[in-house]
């Protein structure tokens, strides 16, 4: 039986969510971007997927603008985890993420997530300041990211999956867990 792992890529306008989905997806992603002054913006959602054995990872990039916040909950319904992306190339961009980050952490308080400080190649705000500005709790990881760099995108995903594992099963894969058998705990 094919199972669905639902991963949401959240973050404000211009954070790089569409790029992240494009970099990771193994199928041509569905994009719903339209031109905006100086760049494009997602008006509905981005979608991509990756098949891993009998598990299909569905990637949903959600629209960042606050006027679409009624869509956030629709798209996030039934997600296993989310990556919250911020554009760390300016202080203003990081601050613009506060509303959405508060929304996600208060609406989905138990859903595993990591914060990805994107555009590290041109970063003006380091990950410690990203943490401070967003008020990220100490047990939540903030990782550096360049969304066009596949290695960094995969590293972010691995950190997130490790967090999912740690939160659901109380230990970190990186700390030496091997595949168990007969696990009865389930995620969801």
């Amino acid at each position: 039986m094919v199972k669905v792992f639902k991963l949401v890529i959240a973050g404000p306008y211009g954070a790089g969510k569409t790029t992240f989905v494009k970099t990771l997806s193994e199928v041509v992603p569905i994009e719903t971007d339209v031109p905006a002054p100086g760049k494009s913006t997602t008006v509905a959602f981005d979608y991509g997927k990756i098949r891993v054995n009998d598990i299909v990872v569905h990637l949903f990039g959600i629209p960042g603008q606050e006027r679409f916040n009624f869509l956030w909950r629709i798209i996030a319904r039934g997600m296993h985890a989310y990556i919250f992306m911020v554009d760390s190339s300016s202080l203003e961009s990081v601050k613009s993420a506060i509303f959405m980050y508060n929304y996600f952490t208060s609406t989905f308080p138990t859903t595993p997530h990591v914060v990805a400080a994107n555009k590290q190649d041109i970063a003006k705000v380091d990950i410690n300041n990203v943490r401070m500005i967003l008020g990220v709790k100490p047990d939540i990881k903030v990782v550096p990211l360049i969304a066009i760099n596949k290695k960094m995108v995969l590293e972010t995903l691995v950190v997130l999956l490790d967090e999912v594992h740690r939160l659901m099963y109380g230990s970190s894969f990186q700390q030496g867990n091997s595949h168990g058998t007969g696990n009865e705990k389930t995620l969801m």
Binding site: I55, L154, V164, N183
Partner: peptide, 22 residues
């Protein structure tokens, strides 16, 4: 189109995903 919801996953499922991406 966006109401795809995640299935119940076991610890093994998560470890399979971790192995794959690593």
């Amino acid at each position: 189109a966006v109401t795809v919801e995640g299935d119940e996953l076991t610890e093994d499922d998560i470890l399979i995903l971790l192995d794959y991406f690593k």
